[in-house]
Amino acid sequence: MLGDSSKAQEVFHTTLREATLRAAQGQLPKEPFWLFRDARWRCLQATQAELQPEPLKLEEHDLAPQAASQIERLDSSQLAIWISSAPEPQRTALALFYLNEFDYGEILDLAELKLAELSRFLAQGRRQLQAWLNAKFPESRTV
């Protein structure tokens, strides 16, 4: 989310320290995922102060039947960079969805999104990723 390990570590420690203090004072929120939400907000605050990328209209393609084989050819760190370069809150939506640790209701709660928004971000993300895959592996389209 930050693209900078030192900043990420600072957010990590600040979040944990804050959680420990709140636990010691018996003030932990009863709602689930507050720690994740807290960490996400700290990340967003940390990135707000930085230079923001210009909004870019990415190309979108329909999902191809051979998409799975295209993805297999992709390097995992390339995918990580692609997801991390997505604008917020699409980046959070894609990251949480593909982490496969939360169901859609939990993602809505965590990322503070509505169902229509999450749906749009995911559908758009898939189509944009497919376009990128098609550009990266053009020969696959003919298979």
């Binding site: 390990s5 990420a8 570590q9 999902l63 039947p65 998409a67 799975a68 993805i71 297999e72 992709l74 995992s76 760190s77 995918l79 990580a80 997801i83 969805f97 593909y98 982490l99 496969n100 898939r126 990723l129 497919q130």
Partner: peptide, 23 residues
């Protein structure tokens, strides 16, 4: 089916994203 195959392939690749040593 196409959407789920796509998502499964992406999730599989996400699982392989290495955690930086410092993290």
């Amino acid at each position: 089916a196409g959407q789920q195959n796509f998502d499964r392939a992406v999730a599989e690749l996400v699982r392989l994203i290495p955690v930086p040593p410092e993290t």
